[in-house]
Amino acid sequence: MTARAGTLRSMPGRRGAEAMLEIGGLHKSFGGVHALAGVDLRVDEGEIVSVIGPNGAGKTSFFNVVTGLYPPDGGDIMFEGRSIVGLESSEITEAGIARTFQNVRLFLNMTVLENVMVAQHCRTRAGAFRAVLRTPFLRREEAEIETRAKEILAFFGTRLVGYRFDQPALSLSYANRRRLEIARAMATRPKLLLLDEPVAGMNPRETAELTGLIRKLRDERGLTVVVIEHDMRVVRDVSDRVIVLDHGTKIAEGSYDEVSSNEAVIEAYLGRPAEVG
């Protein structure tokens, strides 16, 4: 399918940008649990969209299905006008979607630099043959991989650079592990970045800083970002648009102010105030 078809499918009433991700009727159940029960959703190029909802609402499952970790039971996922349902998760990453994990899943025994280098796999080409012969092509590519990795790590200030390059990821603090995971996702050169609770466990200062970085990802690096977040201040500060999930369905969508005054949303969160912010 072509990009044109994607435009034709886009819903009216949105700003004229190209639909980057367009999802229709997405279903996924685990045994009897309907983690996703018919979600429709659209993300435009250059947007920062927040996905919120109480625990167990299906937010992480949504990421898992989009990135091909689980096949959907039904529905369609179009990325840049092309259906990505049924692709391997490595192919989806190659198409331009990268993610982080709610329960940080780094390659803990690899060094900080290696974590970022290995994620450039699908953007590089040298295979076993060139590696054994150490051709000029390979050496150039290796140098580029390393330079790029260092450049990406520098995005996070001084925290992941210098002596940290060669430290195993498991020696990092919790907040740094979250940052490294974002760096690793950036290294796959995505167009769309999915962040699953990126500030969970961070203190207010670190949270504020990462909020700024998320904006920078869009403004300076041109990424489209979907972020799952519980911290309402972060949601307010970064999102162009907020989508609220509950029990696997989308119950509200709009700007932060619209959503936060929405009856259904307040009801969904009621009785579970501890989980908000």
Partner: peptide, 17 residues
């Protein structure tokens, strides 16, 4: 190495396992 560490994540980072 990445595959040995976590195959699922390696695939999600674009490695054709």
């Amino acid at each position: 190495t990445a595959i040995r560490e976590d195959e699922t994540v390696a695939a999600a980072m674009g490695i054709n396992v």
